[in-house]
Computed example of a mutant assay.
Amino acid sequence: MAIRIALIGTGAVGRGILEAITRKDLGIVLTGVADSRSGMIHSDGISPSDLLSRKRETGLCGDVSITADDVVRTAPYDVLVEVSPTDAATGEPATSYIRTALSRGCHVVTSNKGPVALHYHELKQEADKAGVSFRFEATVAGAIPILHTLLESLGGNEVQALYGVLNGTCNYILTRMAEEGLSYKQALDEARALGYAEADPTYDVKGIDAAIKLVILANTVLNQRITLEDIDITGIDLLTEEAIRLAEEQDATIRLIGEIIPGKNLYRLSPRIIPRHHPLVVHGSLNAIILRTDLAGDLVFSGKGAGSLETASAVLGDILSIRDRYAGGN
Score class of each variant (00 low, 15 high):
residue 127 A to S: 13
residue 128 D to I: 10
residue 128 D to G: 11
residue 130 A to N: 13
residue 130 A to M: 11
residue 130 A to W: 13
residue 131 G to A: 11
residue 133 S to E: 14
residue 133 S to G: 06
residue 133 S to T: 07
residue 134 F to P: 03
residue 134 F to G: 00
residue 135 R to I: 05
residue 135 R to M: 13
residue 135 R to N: 13
residue 135 R to G: 02
residue 135 R to D: 13
residue 137 E to M: 05
residue 139 T to P: 02
residue 139 T to Q: 03
residue 139 T to A: 02
residue 140 V to T: 00
residue 140 V to A: 02
residue 140 V to H: 01
residue 141 A to R: 02
residue 142 G to Q: 04
residue 142 G to W: 03
residue 142 G to C: 00
residue 144 I to R: 05
residue 144 I to F: 03
residue 145 P to S: 01
residue 146 I to N: 03
residue 146 I to E: 00
residue 146 I to Y: 01
residue 147 L to A: 01
residue 148 H to F: 00
residue 148 H to I: 00
residue 149 T to E: 07
residue 149 T to N: 06
residue 150 L to N: 05
residue 150 L to Q: 07
residue 150 L to A: 06
residue 150 L to T: 01
residue 151 L to A: 00
residue 151 L to S: 05
residue 151 L to V: 03
residue 152 E to M: 05
residue 152 E to I: 07
residue 152 E to V: 11
residue 153 S to V: 07
residue 153 S to I: 04
residue 153 S to R: 15
residue 154 L to R: 11
residue 154 L to G: 04
residue 156 G to L: 06
residue 156 G to H: 08
residue 157 N to K: 11
residue 157 N to R: 11
residue 158 E to H: 15
residue 158 E to G: 12
residue 158 E to M: 14
residue 158 E to C: 13
residue 159 V to M: 13
residue 160 Q to D: 11
residue 160 Q to E: 15
residue 161 A to E: 15
residue 161 A to T: 13
residue 161 A to R: 15
residue 161 A to K: 15
residue 162 L to N: 06
residue 162 L to W: 09
residue 163 Y to K: 14
residue 163 Y to Q: 13
residue 163 Y to G: 03
residue 164 G to T: 08
residue 164 G to N: 10
residue 164 G to R: 05
residue 165 V to A: 06
residue 165 V to L: 08
residue 165 V to E: 10
residue 165 V to S: 09
residue 165 V to C: 08
residue 165 V to T: 11
residue 166 L to G: 10
residue 166 L to Q: 13
residue 166 L to F: 12
residue 166 L to I: 12
residue 167 N to P: 03
residue 168 G to R: 09
residue 168 G to M: 06
residue 169 T to Y: 07
residue 169 T to K: 07
residue 169 T to C: 12
residue 170 C to I: 01
residue 170 C to P: 02
residue 170 C to E: 09
residue 171 N to M: 04
residue 171 N to K: 06
residue 171 N to A: 02
residue 172 Y to E: 03
residue 172 Y to Q: 03
residue 173 I to S: 00
residue 174 L to E: 04
residue 174 L to G: 02
residue 174 L to T: 06
residue 174 L to N: 06
residue 175 T to P: 11
residue 175 T to A: 05
residue 176 R to F: 13
residue 177 M to W: 11
residue 177 M to L: 08
residue 178 A to I: 08
residue 179 E to T: 15
residue 179 E to F: 13
residue 179 E to K: 15
residue 180 E to F: 15
residue 182 L to K: 15
residue 182 L to I: 10
residue 182 L to F: 14
residue 183 S to D: 07
residue 183 S to C: 06
residue 184 Y to C: 03
residue 184 Y to K: 10
residue 186 Q to E: 15
residue 186 Q to G: 08
residue 187 A to Q: 10
residue 187 A to E: 08
residue 187 A to S: 14
residue 187 A to W: 11
residue 188 L to V: 08
residue 188 L to Q: 09
residue 188 L to R: 09
residue 188 L to H: 11
